[in-house]
Each structure stands twice: as C-alpha cells, then as structure tokens.
Design a protein around this nucleic acid. Structure first.
Length: 295
DNA sequence: GCCCAGGCCATTT
DNA sequence: AAATGGCATGGG
C-alpha cells in the first residue's frame, strides 16, 4: 500500500546525498526510489512532482523526518545576499535539513572524523549489520541503528573491525556515557544552544564541530554552524580572501553573526556547493573573484 | 610512495 | 587562545 504527502519544492535525492544522513540507499531497479529507516521503522520513498510516495511509516512521520514543514522560501530569504551564498542557494535548491534520531545522528558524526562521506556510510552500514535489530521490509531485511545500550556492550576490537580505527574508542566511550546516564540526550534537547553544545562536548569524540552537526541534524538547532574542512576553506578563500592568519575564533564569530538565524541551512548549502564544484580543494576562479570582503 | 578526508585530544607556546 | 603532532583507514 502506498501513501502520499505533499512536498512542494523538495529535492529528495539531493537531501539524502548531501552529507547529513548516511544510510539511505537507492532501490536497485527502481530509479528515484530510496530505501532506509526512520528510526526503527523501515521506509521506501520516491518523489512524484510535488508529492512523495511512501511505503512504510505513516505519512505524518515521514513529513516530520524530512522536515517538510520548514518554510524553505522564508529560510532562504534570511540568507545574506552575496555572490557565494546566492550561487550555493541556487545550486542546492530544494535541500532540507532533516530531523534525524538524536543518537543515530550523533554516533555517525562521531565516526566522521577524518573520513569521507562514502566511508561514513560504510561504517554506518557495518555497525548496523553487526548490532542492528533486523527489520523485514519488502522481501529484504533492514537493520536499525543500535542503541547506546547495545553498543555499550560491544568491544573496541569489534568496532575497529567495522573500519572505525581510532574512532572506535570514541564511539564506545560515548555509548557508555549515555547508557550509564552520565550524559543525557533528553537534557541536551531541553537546553539552550550553547549549553546543549557544552553537554555534547563532554562525550568522548565530540568536539565543537561534531556537536554542531548533531545539534543541526539531530536536535533541530537550525542556527548551529558546523565548520569542517570544506566550510573553513569557503570562509577563508571567499569571505576572508584578502586576510592573513584568520583565527578559528574569528571564523566562528563571523559565521555566527553573518549567516543569520538559519545559519545551519546556509552552511549546508555552502558545504554541498563547494564539495560538488571545487576541484583539488580550490574554488572556481569566478567564486573567488566575486567573493565579498567582510569588515 | 605521496596526499587528503564533514576532527579530536594532549601538549606546548 | 592558538599552533603542533598523533591518531586508523581507505581511496585517488
């Protein structure tokens, strides 16, 4: 049985491949159709014009997960008007910041340190296959991401066998801190942005960048602005092109003030645009030549 | 062999 | 506060 939800101007494929979520996969033989899980609920989804066709969860659950209620036009209207931001906005039109389960989101970003997106996907898949609860769906078996309690019972060697390397100790330590109640994600969800970030940073393997990714993609904090290697290059080579020795604190200060209340959205559009169009870590000449010069 | 990848951490200035 | 080096693994 297939249900539908209205999803005007939503680019499903772009959103699922934008480096914010790491387990959705194309349905082989059915182009445009993606299979994944929303929490523990299996789901297949594909776009038909301004509607989504859904198999699995109730439509309302899908609408919440994909944040179809986010007012994209109003959000984009808050972005600063500069050539780099406008190019990224045009390039990533229809991308949404989705609402992921908190632990699943945090855990995958703990494993993301010094890894490329395809590797993060591979580690997520290996962890699901090893510890995830099997969920039958359409003749296949999907695996839900294991809870902190489940992973707390794993060994570091078992996690390393999933390709985590030095990240194994971080993920295991975070799982155990949550399973023991030493840190409480429900408390994070109730705290203001700065306090929530500080709580998350108490977990092993969680620094400011990973905390901001979790806040943005797992806690709905749309002002959170993760600065990774790509965004740092965007900031330095476009927004601080003529400056020398820009400190990390200055970059954070600029980002927090310049990109506005939906800075996380702006960041994700800039991230996707840069990752998709830059070559050898360098921006296209046009991007630099048209860049603004703050302060 | 080289280089880099959605960083974090401990240590030193 | 800011710079430095170590850390595992995989791919170009």
């Amino acid at each position: 049985m297939t249900a539908e939800v209205e999803a005007p101007g939503f680019d499903l494929a772009l959103t699922l491949d934008s480096g914010q979520v790491f387990h959705w996969e194309p349905d082989p033989g059915r182009p445009g159709r993606f299979v994944g899980l929303i929490g523990a609920t299996p789901c297949a989804v594909e776009r038909h014009g301004d509607r989504l066709a859904i198999d699995g969860p109730p439509p309302a659950e899908v609408a919440t997960y994909f944040a179809l209620d986010h007012p994209l036009d109003a959000i984009v209207a808050t972005f600063p008007r500069d050539p780099a931001m406008e190019a990224a906005t045009a390039f990533a039109r229809g991308m949404r910041i989705i609402r992921q389960p908190r632990w699943e989101c945090l855990a995958t970003f703990i494993t993301s340190a010094l890894k490329q997106v395809p590797h993060i996907r591979a580690m997520s898949r290996a962890i699901r296959e090893r510890w995830g609860r099997p969920v039958p769906f359409g003749g296949e078996v999907l695996r839900a991401y294991p809870s902190p309690e489940t992973l707390a019972g794993a060994t570091e060697a078992e996690l390393r066998a999933c390709g985590l390397g030095f990240r194994a100790r971080h993920l295991l330590g975070a799982a155990r801190a949550l399973a023991s109640g030493q840190v409480d994600l429900a408390a994070v969800a109730e705290a203001p942005d700065d306090a929530a970030r500080e709580l998350l940073c108490r977990l092993p393997g969680v620094g400011v960048k990973v905390a901001n990714c979790a806040l943005l993609f797992g806690f709905g904090r749309l002002a959170a602005f993760p600065i990774d290697t790509w965004i740092e290059r965007v900031l330095r080579e476009i927004y601080f092109k003529k400056k020398r020795r820009v400190t990390p604190a200055r970059l954070r200060e600029f980002a927090a003030g310049y990109f506005g209340p939906y800075g996380g959205y702006a960041q994700q559009y800039l991230f996707h645009h840069a990752r998709s169009t830059w070559r050898r870590g360098q921006p296209p000449r046009a991007a630099v030549d048209s860049g603004p010069d703050p302060r």
